[in-house]
Design a binder for these strands. Structure first.
Length: 603
RNA sequence: GGCCCCGUGGUGUAGCGGUCUAACAUGCCACCCUGUCACGGUGGAGAUCGAGGGUUCGAAUCCCUUCGGGGUCGCCA
């Protein structure tokens, strides 16, 4: 090794130690004679002092060195002079007095700052990803990722889980998201698909008798990207035989608690995790992944607005729609401009508009002049007061209301037009505006009992909300009469308004599976074609089983307190699924296409 | 696929019809400086404003197209 110690590891206890260090020049401070270099390696930064009187050769090297040069330094660790300690550095109590030094490599001036945490253009960061990853924040994220996956492996291994790899070249699946396809040279005209998840394989591993399987699996989905979506991403995928839902929940909950305690003890993680049924989450928060760090719960005002002549509300109730709102404590002080901005937010999510009523006094006895609303004359003071009472508004509060007409898309059962999504968006916008969400809290919440099926108006049939192997609740075994009302033994884990994982107890009996396929209006032929290998396997003594898949990237984003999963992935892709560093994806040689039996369509 | 935002010296920003022969900070180069730690000081180099087209007497500034990046809805679990 060209070094005997890591820069970032040196402490007061190392005083007097002779060390050889090697690393990058983080910063250089040249005082004419004395030169200070902050030398950085993978573990951190140490100040090295170059004194021309004591070590002229080392000093000459330090004069020549520039930012990001690779240096080897020999010297002695010593306590810093009194008053010159640097509390902002982990190594700040000591420094290294250089006795000799070598430049191992020079470096061009970097295209962006490595020694400062400033926002840099994304393309530039990705083009020079190896420099971006040198930055301490990014470096820390990637190391944290290692620590988390190491923790996961240890935790699950201790509990008897076996790590098993599944194919990356897998079979295409028509349902779900779009597949990444890989043409087969040996079987011209046929394609593999990169797995959207190892779902089928993990269930087959249960049939294979492993009982407890896990994998940190790469998954691929060819859909439009977002800050929290990459074309390839990682899941902690696991499956257990002879386990009930509670076993899975406890397993994952304990894992996340331990990750938090060991790796981010400074974060606040309320335990036990909250639990909500899908229906309750939708009713109270308008979302199946509510952020529970703050209130701002939805209130149903449908009954309270009955009889109002106000057309917006009347047409909603008359058509079987709903009217719901959110009380904003202290929101009566919002300006017209602020309310307009919130109106724009709900409109983006499909609401027609936003009705606001400000209560300058308690709604129970507010005079007409103490009610402020652009629609007061249509609504009437009595109704305005009644709405405030029902909603629980107090003096100084603002009631924001969205009305949705009925007969709206029956998708996600129980929703009322676009009211829920709009109020969910409103709730998040308000929390952001008012700073209600504590950034140092990870508020986990299980969402249970999702609907088993959802109806598609377009295709006039039911679809599985998760996938067709999801078991119904025991109470909903007889779902055939009304599939839309049945619920599943499913579980999503959410945190701070994000979904970070999900799974279910699976169906393992042939007859129940057949009923599900019937409810999905799939013919025997179709089921055989798509799921024959699964169904056949289940006939050979499939154990009761269930599992979950956790989004590893999102999990890391949470623990790293970063809202972009690109910052916890070493080599991510841009929003257009390309890599500015390698240039991928790229055109290929016609000979390669020919070999695969492919011809490109003219653009 | 829709909508929105961004693209100016190496980096981050300002400028938003003539006074821009483009400003500021930082970085870079040179010189000075023995205790700094985003060291300090003096001086210097460095962009024709993503690309193409148009409007105009005149465009970084307005319009169109296009490329790249980002956000978001749809999509996606």
């Amino acid at each position: 090794m060209l070094k005997t110690a890591y820069c970032g590891d040196l402490r007061e206890s190392d005083e007097g130690l002779d060390v050889v260090l090697a690393g990058w020049v983080h910063r250089r401070r040249d005082h004419g004679a004395l030169i200070f270099i902050d030398l950085r390696d993978s573990r951190g930064i140490i100040q090295v002092v170059f004194d021309p009187k004591q070590a002229p050769q080392a000093h000459a090297v330090a004069s020549e060195a520039r930012v990001e040069y690779v240096l080897q330094v020999e010297g002695r660790v010593r306590r810093r002079r009194a008053g010159t300690e640097n509390a902002s550095l982990a190594t700040g109590a000591v420094e290294v007095q250089a006795t000799s030094a070598q430049i191992l490599n020079s470096a061009k001036t970097p295209p962006f700052y490595i020694n400062e945490d400033v926002d840099v253009d994304e393309t530039l960061r990705l083009r020079y990803r190896y420099l971006d990853l040198r930055r301490q924040r990014m470096h820390g994220n990637i190391v944290l990722r290692h620590l988390v996956t190491r923790k996961i492996r240890g935790y699950l291994a201790e509990r008897g889980f076996v790590e098993i790899e599944t194919p990356v070249l897998a079979n295409p699946t028509p349902e779900g998201s779009r597949d990444y396809l890989v043409p087969s040279r040996i079987n011209p005209g046929n394609f593999y698909a990169l797995p959207q998840s190892p779902q089928q394989f993990k269930q087959l591993l249960m049939v294979a008798g492993f009982e407890r399987y896990f994998q940190i699996a790469r998954c691929y989905r060819d859909e439009d990207l977002r800050a929290d979506r990459q074309p390839e991403f990682s899941q902690l995928d696991l499956e257990m035989s002879f386990a009930g839902q509670e076993d899975i929940l406890q397993l994952i909950e304990q894992l996340y608690i331990e990750i938090g305690r060991e790796l981010r003890p400074d974060l606040n993680i309320p335990v036990p995790f909250a639990r909500l049924s899908y229906e309750e989450a939708m009713r109270r928060f308008g979302s199946d992944k509510p952020d529970l760090r703050y209130g701002l719960e939805l209130v149903d005002l449908t009954n309270a607005v009955r009889g109002t002549p106000f057309l917006v509300f009347k047409s909603a109730t008359d058509s079987g729609g709903t009217v719901e709102g959110i009380v904003v404590p202290g929101g009566a002080a919002f300006s017209r401009k602020e309310i307009d901005a919130l109106t724009e937010t709900v409109k983006t999510y499909g609401a027609r508009g936003l009705v606001s009523i400000a209560y300058l006094a308690d709604p129970a006895n507010a005079g007409e002049e103490q009610l402020r609303s652009p629609v007061l004359k249509f609504l009437g003071a009595d109704h305005a007061r009644a709405l405030g009472r029902v909603a629980g508004a107090r003096a100084g509060d603002l009631l924001l209301i969205v009305a949705g007409v009925g007969g709206a898309p029956a998708k996600d059962a129980g929703s009322s037009g676009r009211v829920k999504p709009a109020l969910d968006a409103l709730r998040r916008a308000l929390a952001a505006k008012l700073g209600l969400a504590d950034p140092n809290t990870l508020q986990f919440c299980w969402i249970l009992e999702f609907p088993l099926f959802e109806w598609s108006d377009e295709d006039e049939r039911y679809y599985s909300v998760t996938h067709p192997f999801t078991a119904p609740l025991d109470a909903d075994r007889e779902f055939a009469a009304d599939p839309g009302a049945a619920h599943s033994q499913s579980h999503d884990l959410t945190c701070n308004g994000q979904e970070i994982g999900g799974g279910s107890i699976r169906i393992y009996q042939r007859s129940l599976q057949a009923e599900v396929f019937r409810a999905l209006s799939l013919s025997d032929e179709e089921t055989r074609e798509r799921f024959s290998h699964m169904l056949e396997a289940f006939e050979f003594g499939a154990p009761p089983h269930g599992g979950i898949a956790m989004g590893l990237d999102r999990t890391l984003a949470l623990f790293a307190q970063d809202d972009d999963i690109r910052n916890v992935i070493a080599f991510p892709k841009t929003k257009s699924a390309s890599d500015p560093m390698t240039g991928a994806p790229l055109p290929v040689d016609p000979a390669q296409l020919d070999e695969l039996g492919l011809r490109l369509k003219d653009p």
